[in-house]
Write a protein that binds this DNA or RNA. Structure first.
Lengths: 215, 215
DNA sequence: GTCTATACCTAGATAGAC
DNA sequence: GTCTATCTAGGTATAGAC
């Protein structure tokens, strides 16, 4: 019974799987989790609905994989900035800036990752993902406290607050039809203004002294 | 065709409707929106599934009504505090305190209102509800800026950040199985500590000077 | 008006031909 | 391995008896 697939076969299968994940990600970004049925995803990938089950045991498994890839990428990007060079406060500022900019550049996907209604399995994955953001923020906050840039505070709670604040501030621009609302009010301000205000708010929240240049 | 129901009939019908809403709210608080099927709700209310449609045209309509009642109540409570007596900063502090305490005392419902996966109609209602929180917070922040208690800032963005921060800090305690996690880390701190830290974080976020007594 | 029973629809998942 | 066609389950909504 032990029959080993040739490398070429493996590569082909893997490519098909990757293609499916990529198309599923695109569909989710466009129409959200609830509308991303197996049929819709399969259509987009150019295969039959049944064929999806050659690559994933269930729709949930595919959805989770889609989420994990996309969210993992964002976490990695943020991690690189937050653990990069510079002092804690400026890393925090640029981390938030990078995160927000990326989200605003890919709104559909960002909304799906951050806020869009999703099945329980994806919801659980999202919680996990937010926990990682929290952990990253907490690291920086702790460092800031240690170096005296930030006042004493419960780093985990601040980190949770930062995660929530960033998500909520972005949620409205992201959730809006398209580019109708760059500012939170829907009427004022460009993306840059939004970013500047968000960064300032985040720094205040962590207790950083006013006006450090926001990378 | 114009036949007018007697007052007694009306009262009975209304009572039945209220009872149904109350039971539906309880079910949602216990098991979440996704598990609150018409059958489950009807069972809990002691009526047949079909009878639900005597009071509501659809499951969605019932769900929206449940959300609206519960969420409306929370908004009203917060509004009373935020527009009550005292200076802007202390009202902000006690408003957050009251909100958080209420949420922690009724976790299931708070989680359903704040974060639990829900059908689109409820999701839309939730957005609206959050907009109201934002508006209330923004009012107080504007007042604080005007009186010089708070530094200049974009009040709407700060308000969104506050809404998100409070929600996220509470989400983990709320989402946890039961009382395993009172602190954000799941290990440390009592509810009071959590409240104190949350309040401090919120005040920092709005730029309030440190250590006003937190009502 | 409320119940029982059921129709019906949506979506995920499977079987068997090719 | 992939497609077409189909099965099934879960849950909303309706019909008709009482």
């Amino acid at each position: 019974m032990a029959y080993r697939k040739t490398p070429a076969e493996l590569r082909r299968l893997d490519a098909a799987r990757e293609h499916l994940i990529a198309r599923a990600t695109a569909v989710v970004a466009e129409v959200g989790w609830s509308q991303a049925s197996v049929t819709a995803v399969a259509d987009s990938a150019g295969i039959a609905a049944g064929s999806v089950y050659q690559h994933f045991p269930s729709k949930s498994a595919l959805a989770v994989e889609v989420f994990r890839r996309a969210a993992g990428h964002e976490v990695a990007v943020l991690e690189e900035v937050l653990r990069g060079p510079g002092d804690a406060v400026s890393r925090l500022a640029s981390g938030v800036g990078v995160f927000a900019r990326r989200a605003l550049e890919n709104r559909g996907l960002a909304y799906a990752l951050l806020a869009a209604p999703a099945e329980p399995a994806v919801g659980a994955e999202r919680l996990d993902h937010r926990r990682r953001y929290r952990a990253l923020f907490a690291e920086v906050v702790r460092e800031g406290i240690a170096t005296g840039q930030l006042p004493p505070q419960h780093a985990e709670i601040t980190a949770a607050a930062l995660t929530g604040a960033v998500g909520e501030v972005l949620a409205y621009p992201l959730g809006a039809p398209d580019d109708t609302a760059t500012g939170t009010t829907g009427s004022t301000g460009s993306t840059d203004d939004l970013l500047a205000e968000l960064t300032a708010t985040v720094l205040r929240c962590a207790g950083a002294a006013a006006h450090p240049t926001t990378a």
